[in-house]
């Protein structure tokens, strides 16, 4: 193929520029790794093998007697994720419309909507969780609120993008036959966006399952609390069971959700 194309122009200047960039990057890399090498505390690795031998086999021999307790907490984790995502998925609908360019006439008002969602997304999950544990007390409810609020920001943005990508010609057609705003919403807009909304909500549910396993670390309910406890007690057998449970549940839900989402859109 190559010889049928005209020769590429020689760009000496560009090559020199690239060479300089690569050299600078190489220097930074070498400098950084050398610093780490010199300052690292290598004694950490001294009895690594011994520690591993103590922990790893226990992790891989889960304590099945704890199954009831662990299962109950895992179910709670899934419920926290479900309730939180449900709140977010519904709450994000009006905000998605607010932040969608093609739905709001005033650009200022629209930008305000976008900013509101950005603001919501800036809160890290764990910080929010700590905040809610303090305000509503430790437990699942704090977890639900945390998940709801963080998922809401992302879903609102995704919804807005879905709404911005719809075919406005259908809206035009409905306007032309005398439909009012509400009817246009239900007949022209919802049929175009709802499957995508649902798909994004399911996707967010997958993320929230993983997120809610962590929330217990700060007392916001779910399996996380048990993780902290069993790690603190060096109860590796129980931790092994917890990890196994999480892996199974997350995989099953991811698998199911992917299947459902494929059929939706």
């Amino acid at each position: 193929m190559g010889k049928y194309l005209p020769p590429k122009p020689h760009q000496t200047q560009k090559r020199i520029r690239n060479l300089i960039i690569y050299t600078i990057l190489a220097i930074i890399f070498i400098w950084a790794f050398k610093g780490v090498w010199d300052r690292a505390d290598w004694s950490v690795f001294n009895n690594l093998a011994e520690k591993f031998q103590r922990v790893i086999p226990s992790l891989f021999s889960p304590d099945w007697n704890q199954l009831d307790k662990v299962w109950e907490k895992i179910v709670e984790t899934v419920f926290i994720a479900y309730a939180g995502t449900l709140i977010a998925a519904i709450l994000a609908v009006p905000f998605g419309f607010w932040a969608a360019k093609n739905m709001v006439k005033s650009p200022i008002w629209n930008t305000l909507g976008k900013w509101f969602l950005i603001l919501d997304r800036t809160f890290p999950e764990l910080i929010l969780a700590i905040f809610f544990v303090i305000t509503v007390g430790p437990g699942a409810f704090a977890g639900v609120l945390t998940i709801g609020l963080t998922a809401f920001g992302m879903l609102g943005k995704l919804y807005a993008e879905v709404i911005e990508s719809i075919d406005m010609k259908v809206v035009e057609a409905m306007e032309a036959n005398g439909a009012n705003k509400m009817q246009i919403l239900f007949y022209a807009i919802f049929p175009q966006v709802l499957p995508e909304f649902l798909s994004f909500a399911l996707y967010r549910f997958e993320i929230d399952i993983r997120a809610s396993t962590i929330l217990g670390l700060v007392g916001a309910g779910g399996i996380g609390t048990l993780i902290v406890l069993s790690a603190a007690n060096r109860n590796w057998e129980q931790l092994g069971l917890i990890l196994l449970g999480i892996i199974v549940v997350v995989s099953v839900i991811d698998f199911a959700s992917t299947k459902i989402r494929k059929r939706l859109v």
Partner: peptide
């Protein structure tokens, strides 16, 4: 054509009636 791709032919057709139908009824 400006039809709603995901909706059925019938739903697209009856949407011509929206202007004559009350909001709640049509929803």
């Amino acid at each position: 054509y400006n039809l709603v791709n995901r909706s059925s032919v019938f739903k697209n057709t009856i949407s011509g009636r929206l202007g004559h139908t009350g909001t709640l009824k049509s929803i």
